[in-house]
Amino acid sequence: MNNRRSTILINKSFQMNFLKKAFFFLSFIFATIVLANIWLLSPLLDYIQSMNLPQGDELLLIVEDFKNYGLLVMGLLFISLTAFFTMASLLITHRIAGPLYNLENALEKMISNKKLEKVHFRQGDYFLNIQNQFNSFVENFQDEDDQLKRNEKKAS
Rank of each mutant, 00 (worst) to 15 (best):
M1C: 11
N2R: 14
N3H: 12
N3K: 12
R4Q: 13
S6W: 09
S6F: 12
S6G: 14
T7K: 12
I8A: 01
I8L: 08
L9D: 00
I10V: 15
K12E: 07
S13W: 02
F14H: 02
Q15G: 01
M16C: 10
M16E: 03
F18L: 08
L19K: 01
A22M: 09
F23K: 05
F23N: 02
F25E: 06
S27Y: 05
F28M: 07
I29P: 00
A31Y: 02
A31K: 01
A31C: 06
T32F: 14
I33H: 01
V34A: 10
L35P: 00
N37H: 08
I38G: 07
I38K: 04
W39E: 03
L40Y: 07
L44M: 09
L45Y: 05
D46F: 09
Y47H: 11
Y47K: 12
S50V: 13
S50G: 10
M51D: 08
L53G: 00
L53A: 10
Q55C: 03
D57M: 07
L61G: 06
L61K: 14
V63L: 09
D65E: 05
D65P: 00
D65Q: 04
F66H: 05
K67T: 07
N68D: 11
N68R: 10
Y69C: 05
G70Q: 06
L71H: 04
L71R: 01
V73G: 02
M74C: 03
L76Y: 13
L77T: 12
F78C: 04
I79F: 11
I79D: 04
L81R: 01
L81H: 05
T82K: 02
A83S: 09
F85C: 03
M87Q: 13
A88E: 07
A88P: 01
S89N: 07
S89E: 03
L90R: 02
I92R: 03
H94R: 08
G98V: 01
P99K: 01
Y101Q: 14
N102R: 15
N102K: 15
L107M: 11
L107G: 00
L107T: 01
L107Y: 01
E108I: 06
K109C: 01
K109I: 03
S112P: 00
N113G: 02
E117D: 14
E117Q: 12
K118F: 03
H120T: 13
H120N: 11
Q123K: 13
Q123V: 07
G124D: 06
Y126E: 09
Y126V: 14
Y126P: 03
Y126L: 15
N129H: 13
N129R: 14
Q131F: 15
N132H: 09
N132K: 12
Q133D: 13
Q133N: 13
Q133H: 11
F134L: 11
S136W: 05
F137Q: 06
F137W: 09
F137L: 14
V138M: 06
E139I: 06
E139V: 08
F141I: 04
Q142K: 12
D143S: 15
D145R: 13
D146L: 08
K149P: 02
R150T: 10
R150N: 10
N151C: 03
E152G: 05
K153M: 09
